[in-house]
Simulated scan of single mutants.
Amino acid sequence: MYQPGVGDALDALDTPAMIVDLTLMDDNIGRLMERFRVRNVRVRPHLKTVKSPELALRLLAAGAVGGCVAKVSEAEVMAEGGIEDLLITTEIVGRPKLARLVDLLRKHSLIKVVVDSVEGARALDAAVGAANLEAKVLLDLNVGQDRCGVTPGEEALELARQIGEMEHLQLIGVQGYEGHLQHIHDPQERQRRCQQAMQTLTGTAEQLRTAGFPIQIVTTGGTGTAEFCADFDGITEVQPGSFVFMDTDYRNALGGVYSNALTVLATVISRPTPNRAIIDAGLKSLSIDSGMAEPKGWEQLAYQPKGDEHGALVWRDEADADQELPLRIGDRVEMIPSHIDTTINLHDTYYAYRDGRIEAIWPISARGKVQ
């Protein structure tokens, strides 16, 4: 079977194919790292976006202190790929997951986890204790997203006290993720609400320190809020992930701070009517949970999913509906995803290019790692 290789032109790729403009990606990474370097706040990128040890290592080389992952299975992939300092940002519950975590901790002692309940902490303590290990933990605080997280203040203090009595857990920090604020379009509103969340997070961290707990890490922030978080005293690190590639949802919220470096290359396979072009990228290639993908360079056109394998490009403005589309069968179109994380999870491979030629091919090793 024919496989494109490094040095080939993008024309060699079959479609749909996920392609990465290295010039734009490197600029995104360099720009973000510099913004936080001058703020003296560490960057721990969330690797659930890139899902690739190769890309994680590039982020470390650019200045990241480690990485975040959402699941134990992602941590397994990243640790095997050489990323040691990992924070698992989702609560780990159930014997199968705890057994996998213990296996990881035997080899990778820098891995850290979050807890938000006494029940979860006790189960974790028992699992690592049975293996004669210790786990570094952060309290996961609810700072307004109303997902996971212990209530800040007295409930968090009581949970910390309970953890302090456990032999095999070491409380080292707090996490508070304001995911509900990431895509607020009004920057003043996003900043105002982020500051409220940061007051809650850093205030609880100070309460814990006053009570005698050695809180070293206060971690928070996604691509949409990280810079606001970093300007708040007491924040030690931020967790942006989507900035590496960007998508239309973040672009619509942030403007042009970072560039859309990743697209899905598709081919026009049918022109059934003058005002409709069908491409070979449908729901199995482009996620639509955050809206429709957009054809790059064709702002006057809109994308409509037409099933698993097909998508339609039509005029965005109904006033143009009777005009013929300027696309022919065989033309290629780059589609900008609306949600980068879920789109990447649909693909096996990154084709990274510069000046129209493939420079690197990276497997998406953590694709589908949901456990």
Rank of each mutant, 00 (worst) to 15 (best):
M1N: 12
Q3T: 11
P4R: 01
V6W: 09
D8M: 02
A9C: 12
I19K: 00
V20G: 06
V20F: 00
L24F: 11
D26S: 13
R31L: 14
M33H: 12
M33N: 10
V41Q: 06
V41R: 02
R42C: 12
V43M: 08
L47M: 11
K48M: 05
S52G: 05
P53H: 05
V69H: 05
E80N: 09
G81A: 04
I83Y: 02
E84Q: 14
E84N: 13
D85Q: 14
L87V: 08
T89V: 14
I92G: 01
P96E: 02
K97W: 08
R100D: 09
R106Y: 05
K107G: 09
S109Q: 13
I111A: 01
V118P: 12
E119L: 11
E119G: 15
G120S: 06
L124T: 03
L133E: 03
R147V: 00
C148M: 13
P152C: 08
E154T: 15
A156V: 04
A160M: 07
G164K: 03
Y177V: 02
Y177W: 09
I184A: 09
C194V: 12
L201R: 04
T202A: 03
T202C: 09
R209I: 04
I215A: 02
Q216W: 09
V218G: 01
G221T: 07
T223L: 08
T225P: 01
A226T: 04
A226H: 04
F232G: 08
I235W: 00
G241Q: 01
S242N: 07
V244R: 01
M246I: 10
T248W: 08
Y250A: 11
A253R: 09
L254V: 07
G256I: 10
S259K: 15
N260G: 14
N260C: 15
L262S: 05
T263Q: 11
V264I: 10
V268Y: 07
I269K: 07
P272K: 07
T273Y: 14
T273D: 15
R276Y: 13
L283Q: 12
S285G: 05
G291P: 05
M292H: 13
K296T: 15
W298N: 11
E299C: 13
L301A: 04
G307W: 05
H310N: 15
V314H: 08
W315Q: 06
W315D: 07
W315Y: 08
A321Q: 14
D322M: 12
R328Q: 15
I329H: 13
D331I: 04
E334M: 10
E334R: 09
M335V: 07
I336C: 08
I336D: 02
I336R: 03
S338E: 05
S338V: 04
T343C: 04
D348I: 05
Y353Q: 10
G356I: 08
P363D: 10
S365H: 13
A366H: 02
R367Y: 04
K369E: 10
